[in-house]
């Protein structure tokens, strides 16, 4: 199953983001699947340090290593896109 259709995977990703970015006041349900995570529309108010934390979370919890910031920007856009990257089919 492609990642964007795997609700369990997307829930794990959202919980990882909440944990790594210490956004304890936000529930997974409040993070939209198809909105850019680093945009104002996401309501998450993430910054560059959050990007590093998410990168570390992907490495430790999902065993995915993103080589550099360019790679990060390409992969970590929306929850759906990130899930598809982790689980292409």
């Amino acid at each position: 199953m492609i990642g964007s259709q795997d609700e369990a995977l997307k829930l794990r990703l959202k919980m990882m983001i909440i944990e790594e970015c210490e956004k304890e006041d936000i529930t997974p349900e409040e993070i939209p699947d198809d909105v850019e995570l680093f945009s104002d529309a996401s309501g998450l108010e993430l910054d560059s340090l959050d990007a590093l934390q998410i990168s570390m979370g992907l490495q430790t919890q999902f065993k995915v290593r993103l080589a550099d910031s360019k790679d990060f920007r390409r992969v970590v856009t929306t929850i759906n896109a990130l899930a598809d990257h982790l689980q292409p089919e």
């Binding site: 790594e20 210490e22 340090l49 590093l52 934390q53 570390m56 490495q59 430790t60």
Partner: peptide, 10 residues
């Protein structure tokens, strides 16, 4: 055996 969390490092 993991790199430090960025926030912890700071």
């Amino acid at each position: 055996k993991q790199p430090p969390k960025p926030v912890d490092f700071i």
